[in-house]
Design a protein around this nucleic acid. Structure first.
Length: 266
DNA sequence: ATCAGCACCTGTTGGC
DNA sequence: TGCCAACAGGTGCTGA
């Protein structure tokens, strides 16, 4: 479900709700929702949340002990603080000392919690953030260099850039006017510049709208995003392109639905 | 290095 | 109305 803009929205919303709260207990309703079941819970009890932020598509809870919790929401994961009603898909519950709770709800059970000692960005093995100022044109060029894989597939590979998912890969390629099947290494200097600028522009705008709720995404406040109304191609197969009226085409690439305009994107 | 296929899961939707 | 197949925003593994 959530990609960079959604995870960013969730992390921001969660931050002020859980900061400085102390973990008193953990309840695991679905074992596979947490790595190192048993060991992880023991490590967390008594620790305090000192920061909340996003790393790629992970929500990171930093703890007073120096440890971190990396939460990947995958398709349907949600983080809810002090829910008004019991959630039927609750997989994990953090009980705070003050009596409140952080609930991890996940209908499809794909999401994972992982406790990390030391530097989480290293442990997670993910690439550079698209908004990292260190991601210059030459760094970007180095990452696509020699890559024969389609650019859409490359964008989804978290080891290069982290945080981009299927929606924003499609949207950024449309904005940059590049076909999803183009080989990564075949992009010209100006196409690479266009793509990087489009990734940032599309996702910055999506963050401003608190993400896209295509199906059932909700942020930490339980609110849907608003960016889905502005999607140019994603989910618009057969509908006219907003730029040239050509029907948007849907193909499957890297086992994922991929949308593009055959006229605007070359 | 890359890719297709499948696995992990459940809920929703669209076609018949 | 009811059933069933297809599909879903993600990732990891296997085997070719």
């Amino acid at each position: 479900m959530p990609e960079l803009p959604e995870v960013e929205t969730i992390a921001r919303g969660l931050r002020h709700k859980v900061l400085r709260r102390r973990i008193a207990a953990i309840e695991v309703a679905w074992q596979r929702s947490i790595d190192q079941r048993g060991v992880s819970e023991q490590l967390l009890v008594g620790d305090t949340i000192s920061d909340v932020r996003r790393l790629g598509k992970f929500v990171i809870l930093s703890l007073g002990s120096g440890r971190s919790v990396a939460i990947h929401l995958r398709m349907t994961g949600r983080l809810i603080v002090d829910p008004p009603a019991a959630d039927p898909h609750t997989r994990l519950t953090l009980r705070f000392e003050d009596g409140g709770v952080l609930v991890f709800s996940d209908a499809r059970k794909f999401g994972r919690w992982r406790v990390i000692e030391g530097d989480p960005s290293r442990a997670l093995g993910i690439g550079i953030d698209p908004f990292d100022p260190a991601l210059s044109a030459s760094v970007f060029a180095g990452l696509v260099r020699k890559r024969a894989t389609p650019i859409k597939t490359w964008l989804l590979d978290q080891r290069f850039l982290s945080g981009i998912g299927n929606i924003y890969a499609c949207e950024a390629l449309f904005a940059a006017r590049i076909r999803p099947r183009r080989r990564a290494r075949s992009l010209s200097v100006s196409e690479r510049a266009q793509l990087l600028a489009s990734l940032r522009k599309v996702m910055r705008k999506a963050i401003q709208h608190r993400g896209s709720s295509v199906d059932d995404y909700l942020d930490a406040e339980g609110m849907p995003g608003g960016f889905q109304k502005q999607l140019a191609v994603y989910g618009r197969g057969g509908l006219p392109c907003r730029r040239c009226r050509t029907p948007i085409r849907r193909v499957v690439l890297a086992q994922r639905g991929t949308f593009y305009c055959p006229t605007c994107q070359q």
